[in-house]
Amino acid sequence: MIVMEGIEWLDVNESLPDDEMTVLLYHPTLNEPVWLGYFNQHFFYDVMGDQHPNGAVTHWAEMPAGPEGDL
Rank of each mutant, 00 (worst) to 15 (best):
M1I: 05
I2K: 14
I2V: 09
V3E: 12
M4K: 15
M4L: 10
M4N: 12
M4E: 15
E5S: 06
E5C: 04
G6P: 05
G6Q: 09
I7R: 14
I7G: 01
I7F: 12
E8H: 05
W9C: 05
L10K: 06
L10D: 03
D11N: 14
D11P: 05
D11A: 12
V12D: 13
V12M: 03
N13I: 06
N13A: 11
E14V: 14
E14I: 04
E14P: 02
E14C: 13
E14G: 01
S15G: 07
L16N: 03
P17H: 13
P17E: 11
D18E: 10
D18L: 14
D19K: 12
E20G: 00
E20Y: 10
E20H: 12
M21I: 07
M21G: 00
T22Y: 05
T22Q: 14
T22I: 11
V23N: 02
L24R: 08
L24N: 09
L24M: 07
L24W: 11
L25E: 06
L25R: 02
Y26Q: 13
Y26K: 05
Y26H: 15
H27N: 11
H27F: 13
H27C: 04
H27W: 12
H27S: 11
P28S: 08
P28G: 11
T29N: 12
T29Q: 15
L30Y: 13
L30A: 15
L30K: 13
L30W: 09
N31W: 02
E32K: 12
E32V: 13
E32C: 03
E32T: 14
E32H: 09
P33R: 15
P33Q: 06
P33K: 15
P33S: 07
V34E: 08
V34N: 02
V34F: 12
W35S: 10
W35I: 03
L36S: 13
G37Q: 00
G37C: 08
Y38L: 00
F39W: 13
F39D: 00
F39H: 09
F39E: 00
N40A: 09
N40L: 14
Q41M: 11
Q41V: 07
H42D: 14
H42M: 08
F43T: 14
F43P: 01
F43L: 07
F44L: 13
F44H: 07
F44V: 09
F44R: 05
D46M: 07
D46F: 02
D46G: 01
D46E: 11
D46H: 01
D50H: 07
Q51F: 00
Q51R: 14
H52D: 06
P53A: 04
P53F: 03
P53K: 10
P53Q: 15
P53R: 14
N54Q: 10
G55V: 03
G55W: 05
A56R: 04
A56K: 10
A56S: 12
A56W: 02
V57T: 06
V57H: 03
T58F: 08
H59W: 15
H59C: 12
H59G: 12
W60Q: 07
W60S: 13
W60P: 11
A61Q: 02
A61L: 11
A61V: 08
E62N: 09
E62Y: 02
E62C: 13
E62L: 14
M63N: 07
P64W: 00
A65R: 14
G66F: 00
G66T: 03
P67H: 08
P67R: 10
P67C: 04
P67S: 04
E68D: 14
E68Q: 15
G69P: 02
D70T: 07
D70V: 10
